[in-house]
């Protein structure tokens, strides 16, 4: 699970719809597992397969499009807080999701699974989709230390935001619990000052 992410060059899988909710990313009937494995097979399950298992006309079934970068539209990952959505994305081999915007909980879930939610503006988003439509194998370079994303064919580059703490976690494969467990004294100090009774 904990894989560092620094610089990634890859072609993209375009799914530029708005408001893709986590029920589409991983339908509720697949949330019954008690471990984190195997969710990738059911990523976008009902968009990928008909009820009888026949593949539908869907970008992930089209061998033209491959790579470890998923490109979505506005408000990616809205709805349920299910981290299974981020597990499915990671398990299917994606390391970066480029979108116009992300829902808050899902954004955090991606980060906690070492998948980078990369928000870009409309111009860059349009240019990226055009590049992919011109050449489905068009690659993008994501440079996390430099916080830049580049369409390699045109050289068009954009800066993206990520807080310094999470950037460090991603580039060094550290998670929040590692950090919090190192800060136990601060937690106990807080409780001494603020929690008169242990509720």
């Amino acid at each position: 699970m904990k894989q560092p992410l620094t610089i990634l060059q890859s072609s993209c899988v375009p799914l530029p719809l708005d408001n893709i909710d986590t029920d589409q990313i991983i339908p509720a009937r697949f949330l019954k597992a008690t471990d984190r494995k195997g969710f990738g097979d059911n990523l976008f399950r009902d968009w990928r397969y008909a009820p009888d298992g026949t593949p539908r006309d869907f970008v992930m079934n089209d061998p033209t499009y491959t790579g470890s970068i998923l490109v979505a539209g506005e408000n990616f990952g809205c709805g349920s807080s299910r981290e299974h959505a981020a597990w499915a994305i990671a398990d299917a081999g994606f390391r970066v999701v480029i979108a116009r915007s992300f829902a808050d909980i899902h954004r955090q879930n991606e980060l906690n699974n070492f998948v980078l939610p990369l928000q870009v503006d409309k111009d860059f988003h349009t240019a990226l989709l055009e590049a992919i439509s011109r050449d489905p194998r068009a690659t993008v370079t994501v440079d996390l230390p430099a916080q830049t994303v580049t369409i390699d064919a045109t050289g068009q580059t954009a800066h993206f935001d990520i807080n310094g703490y999470k950037k460090y976690c991603l580039t060094h494969a550290l998670d929040d619990i590692d950090f919090l467990l190192e800060n136990k004294d601060k937690i106990e100090n807080y409780e001494t000052q603020h929690c008169s009774t242990r509720r």
């Binding site: 349920s80 807080s81 937690i187």
Partner: peptide, 30 residues
């Protein structure tokens, strides 16, 4: 670990949904 945790804000609390890694965080460190 449920997005509708926002419900509990109705009594004047800060309540929000989180992912499972965060559930583990809270279990481990409150």
């Amino acid at each position: 670990g449920d997005s509708h945790t926002s419900t509990h804000g109705a009594v004047g609390a800060i309540a929000f949904g989180i992912g499972t890694s965060e559930v583990e965080q809270v279990m481990a460190s409150q």
